[in-house]
């Protein structure tokens, strides 16, 4: 995909910082100072221990497909041109689960090992995933 994707992300706080990281080709995760627990999606408190002190660490960008669906029906005009597209839940190797899109050449499957790549649009850089064995840029 090139040009504008036409999605307006009105993120605030830590979620805005995560999107800023994506723009730089990073996959930042919040990590709790008290428990060491990685969390996603962004939140001010740790879902494991409630502590509110945290710092950012970049994820390795690798993980496993927890589940997926390939969408054939556009529920919004902006995704009409994407069809079909695959939404995935990726369990990152650091622990958190992330909603993303799967763009690999290999058929998506639960348990498939995947790696992040960054899809750059004029208005947004989106972290997507492909199978680890897929050729780069495929």
């Amino acid at each position: 995909m090139t040009g504008r994707i036409g999605i307006e992300v009105r993120a605030t706080g830590a979620a805005a910082e995560a999107w800023a990281g994506f723009r730089e080709g990073r996959l930042p995760l919040q990590r709790c100072e008290a428990s060491g627990h990685f969390r996603h999606p962004p939140a001010e408190g740790c879902p494991r221990c409630g502590d509110r002190a945290w710092h950012w660490e970049d994820a390795a960008g690798t993980g496993t497909i927890y589940s997926f669906t390939t969408v054939h029906h556009a529920v919004h005009p902006i995704v009409e041109s994407w069809l079909p597209y695959t939404v995935v839940l990726v369990d990152l190797d650091e622990g958190p689960r992330m909603v993303s899109r799967y763009v690999g050449a290999t058929d998506p499957a639960v348990g498939l090992r995947v790696a992040v790549r960054f899809e750059e649009h004029e208005d947004l850089t989106i972290p997507v995933f492909a199978a680890m064995d897929d050729p780069p840029g495929g």
Partner: peptide
Amino acid sequence: DTLVSEGEMAPGGGVLAAPFGFLA
């Protein structure tokens, strides 16, 4: 008319859901 993503809700408008086409 526009795909605006805000808040935490997933699926729906959540800022870490809707931009990936996770909408309904």
